[in-house]
């Protein structure tokens, strides 16, 4: 399988402080990668840089996405090329209804591909199908984006948007935080349904718990801006048992 994402020697700073210090990562189509690591290791930074957050400065390195230079793309173009970030902290946008938001997003994706805007009836059907897949209340999609949503509803809403936009690469940044076990199961099953041989998922998490439902092919440990270990799914179980301590000590003595 070809590489969907190719990150080489990525260095990223914010306000002059280096956060990512040389990341190398390859993700192939059809794969699920998990990125774990202690707080402050740079996991969310990596996710936000991929999505195109302008607060971060890439000082060195390259990112190829589906053969294209991701770093040269505006952030909206990255989304339309198929990069999707499920936010750790979804933003509340009073006054913008979920329906209008999703219609605009879906149509911008279509326009980018040279397609006509979606018809009203197809759009409503799409909304209903995806909403039902995630067991979301029909009231939620009539409200303003994330406004007054509970923590769990916000995370479900992220996966709902992912389902609507059908990305090539989905980055789930701590999608499990704030979810109870039932919601976690629904969200995970949603992600699994959307996962095919043609797309890939990067799951950022602190806990093995989510990985019981979304089974990764590869697990990476990020620490102090570097990937210090990459292995199979057994690594996550090992970390759950032993913590990061021993890995970090090994990394520091290198």
């Amino acid at each position: 399988m070809e590489n969907l994402l190719e990150i080489k020697n990525l260095h990223v700073s914010v306000e002059g402080k280096e956060i990512l210090k040389g990341i190398d990562l390859e993700v192939k189509k059809g794969e699920i990668h998990a990125i774990m690591g202690p707080n402050g290791s740079g996991k969310s930074t990596l996710a936000l840089v991929l999505a195109g957050d302008p607060r971060f400065e890439v000082t060195k390195g390259s990112i190829l996405f589906d053969g294209k230079n991701l770093l040269e793309m505006k952030l909206e173009d990255r989304a339309r090329e198929g990069v999707f970030l499920s936010f750790q902290y979804p933003v509340e946008i009073p006054g913008v209804s979920m329906v209008n938001f999703m219609r605009a997003a879906v149509n911008e994706h279509r326009k980018y591909k040279g397609e006509e805007p979606i018809s009203a009836s197809d759009f409503l059907k799409l909304m209903r199908d995806k909403r039902e897949m995630l067991g979301m209340d029909s009231q939620l999609v009539n409200r303003s984006v994330n406004e007054g949503f509970s923590g769990g509803e916000k995370k479900k809403n992220e996966i709902f948007q992912m389902a609507m936009l059908n990305p090539k690469l989905a980055i789930l940044d701590e999608t499990d935080s704030g979810l109870d076990i039932d919601a976690l199961r629904i969200v995970a099953s949603g992600v699994n349904k959307l996962h095919t041989d043609d797309n890939a998922v990067i799951v950022i998490t602190h806990y093995q718990r989510l990985l019981d439902y979304i089974k990764p092919d590869v697990v990476h440990v990020l620490y102090d801006g570097r990937i210090i270990k990459t292995a199979g799914p057994e690594l996550a179980l090992e970390l759950e048992e032993k913590g990061y301590e021993s890995l970090i000590n090994t990394a520091n003595t290198k």
């Binding site: 999505a51 195109g52 957050d53 302008p54 505006k74 952030l75 909206e76 989304a79 339309r80 970030l85 936010f87 979804p90 933003v91 946008i93 913008v96 209008n100 938001f101 605009a104 997003a105 911008e108 994706h109 980018y112 984006v145 948007q161 936009l165």
Partner: peptide
């Protein structure tokens, strides 16, 4: 940022 991250161009996001 959130709106743009869903593929909505900056000008359009500002309008919204």
């Amino acid at each position: 940022f959130y709106l743009r991250a869903r593929g909505i161009p900056e000008e359009e996001a500002r309008m919204l």
